[in-house]
Design a protein around this nucleic acid. Structure first.
Lengths: 238, 238
DNA sequence: GAGTGGTCTAGACCACTAT
DNA sequence: TAGTGGTCTAGACCACTCT
């Protein structure tokens, strides 16, 4: 075990160790990690202590345990921005994507700040429309760290997949595991009305998202806009 | 222990038992419940099993454990609707309340459905304004089960407290422990503009809340409206 | 049948809170 | 000092999955 503060309980140090190994890419989403018995042998800890460490990572939604099969790094989380909206979902078709543009640019200062970039670092800037039943539903502006996502510059825009996070994983070996979404309401601009094909001036819901990899490093910042009259969101509070 | 399905693990049955005792009012929010050793003696279970049951209720945010002091029923949860809004908070004053009306009425059908009332059951209908720095910020319509909240009819409207849930606890012995909030955006009506002192036609955020007691019975349904241009909400997704 | 995680026991020792 | 919860051990047995 790496230099861990021995004032911390053993199960904490063990959990930190495993978390770091996932962050470093030693274990990737979908992988099976060592069994309880292997950890017991490796660290000389009791079964209960190992279980406590693993339970902590299950609570953090980093790991999943399957009876009889093993312990796995979690693959995906419910990232869809469409959980904020209720459209007339006649069809079960997943939201379609239409890429509009891709550029390597100097980021705006707030993007630089959110992604914790150094001066001079560039970002990959994407714009796209999300459609439901062929109707424009969301307009998105996406900013990605250049470092780690270079391979996205090699792809034809038309060959981008509808869901980006699985594509980040395949193409760039980058795994998103959590995000912070911030919602607010704005008046629509002529530009947005044109893109979303709205006639009148309607309020617009703006979703700003900062997405993190397993190392808890911010790698993507996006801003999405959709019609507020389709907005409906449910929260459980306890 | 009551008739519990012995196919369930012991720690589950124990957790269910304690949960029911809280729901029934035997233990109230703020109370200390029996110690690990008392549960061990009472149920003849091992320490680890009792701990597992208690941990489950801690995860459900029903219990809180304090090292050296004991295990307590949780008192409150962050129920404030103002977590959805960012106002210019010059002062640290908590949002003031101004009660407008109180009636015992036959509920609208969707309120009856949400509160799972029988035909003929009445509800206590309250309206109030929430103010920040003296400025109207939220307009609320509140519907309470008549049964259990009768004592609210005895109080002068002017003597209602700013925070209702602590008042429900004191006056009615009713404890709210979770809620489901649903958010959407509407255009303002003349009525709402008058109440919130808005000149122009602005979008309005509508928050509908169904609140539950410890027995997981819905007891309050409310609809609150505030200016959408002050709306800002942050969600963590993992 | 071998390997995995899930339940449960019986105990030791420690750290924190009260009085 | 007595009582509480927190950490940790060493083991037994069970339930599930794979082959």
């Amino acid at each position: 075990m790496k230099n861990r503060d021995s004032r911390l309980p053993l199960y904490q140090r063990l959990a930190d160790e495993i978390r770091d190994q996932i962050a470093s890419g030693k274990f990737k989403p979908g992988d099976r990690i060592p069994s309880e018995n292997e950890f017991i042998a490796q660290y000389g800890a009791a079964a209960g202590t190992v279980r406590q460490a693993l339970q902590e990572l299950v609570d953090e939604k980093i790991l999943e345990r399957v009876h009889g099969r093993g312990t796995f790094v979690k693959k995906a989380f419910d990232s869809t921005l469409f959980r904020f909206f209720r459209f007339n979902q006649n069809s079960n078709a997943p939201p379609e994507s239409r890429m509009l543009s891709r550029e390597l640019v100097t980021p705006a200062s707030y993007v630089q700040r959110q992604l914790k970039l150094n001066d001079g670092d560039k970002v990959i800037h994407l714009t796209r429309l999300r459609l439901i039943d062929g109707q424009p539903a969301l307009f998105e502006e996406i900013n990605l760290k250049h470092e780690g996502f270079e391979h996205l510059l090699d792809y034809e825009l038309s060959s981008f997949e509808d869901l980006l996070y699985p594509m980040y994983a395949e193409v760039c070996d980058q795994f998103i595991f959590r995000a912070e979404d911030t919602l607010c309401v704005e008046e629509s601009t002529p530009e947005i009305r044109r893109l979303l094909r709205i006639d009148e001036s309607l309020p617009i819901v703006v979703i700003e998202r900062l997405a993190f990899n397993f190392g808890n490093t911010p790698v993507e910042w996006r801003r999405s806009r959709g019609r507020a009259d389709y907005f409906k969101y449910r929260v459980d509070i306890r």
